[in-house]
């Protein structure tokens, strides 16, 4: 079932010259489904599948991920045309339907 978690992500969006660099750190186990626990039982796959970023509500980045993204995923992307105070929002959803969303205003670097 969908869980809305707002403490899940750390974000920063800084304008340097004409480019806004957005850094995102998510909290997620990113289990491949191939790893075994201490009792030799397979840990079920649990990983982020989709990540979307918007600038003032308009989609700028759509990502599909597999199990090969590291635990606690890290992502940097860059935008042109964003101004100070513009809102960047990132949302992820994983294979179990869990989701988290976070937004941040663009600041001067």
């Amino acid at each position: 079932m969908a869980v809305l978690n707002t403490d899940n992500m750390k974000m920063r969006a800084q304008l340097k010259g004409e480019v806004t660099e957005v850094k995102v750190l998510m909290s997620h186990p990113m289990e491949t489904g191939r790893k075994k626990d201490d009792f030799d039982k397979l840990i079920p796959a649990h990983f982020v599948q989709l990540v979307t970023a918007t600038l003032n509500g308009k989609t700028v980045l759509e990502a599909q991920w597999g199990t090969g993204i590291s635990k606690n995923p890290y992502l940097t992307f860059r935008l042109t045309g964003a101004k100070i105070g513009d809102i960047i929002e990132v949302t992820w959803i994983d294979n179990l339907g869990e989701t988290a969303t976070q937004n941040i205003a663009v600041t001067q670097a």
Partner: peptide
Amino acid sequence: PTPLIAHFKFSQGAEPFIITRIK
């Protein structure tokens, strides 16, 4: 074991640039 790691689609002013961490 599964070669595809990620697929990123850019639109509306997003630069074709990405940094991430992979296994």
